[in-house]
Amino acid sequence: MFDKMHIKMNVNGEDHEFLAEPRDLLIYALREKLNITGPHVGCDTSHCGACTVTVDGKSVKSCTMFVAQANGAEITTVEGIGQPDALHVLQESFREHHGLQCGFCTPGMITRATKLLEENANPTEEEVRFGMAGNICRCTGYQNIVKSILAAASELNSAKEAAQ
């Protein structure tokens, strides 16, 4: 019913081109056109963060961005953060510290946490809690999520030190 737009985007290192209505939300374009189902829909109203992806270097709730706004963008979803045989430190850490239960919030949590640690490599517990406040988890009570992120931060830092 609306004229379709020609959209180009790079998702997790792969180029995609497709037609979409300008009103289509980024989350549905990812999930339904590109079959990238890691990001989830928990609310549709930018409260829960289950749909968090990285768009041109920034954490974005993809239920609140039109696909048209992401035209030409570089996007990373949880699927692009690690590989089965080379998991990201955060992915390991969430498992190690029981930072997830039902797993529905987890893709958004991990995607957001990667940016958080890029923005602040040495966060305090308070900074982690504040920096993750846009991501809701109904299962874990956050304590182990915070623990997972702090542990990942220190691991990443010691790896960096060792490399220097």
């Binding site: 339904e32 189902t37 089965p84 498992r95 987890t106």
Partner: peptide, 21 residues
């Protein structure tokens, strides 16, 4: 024991009902 479910969830490979296509 660490959870066996976590590998798929942390990689975005869970299969929830809205993922069924």
């Amino acid at each position: 024991r660490k959870r066996v479910e976590d590998a798929r969830f942390t990689q975005g490979k869970g299969n929830y009902v809205d993922d069924v296509k």
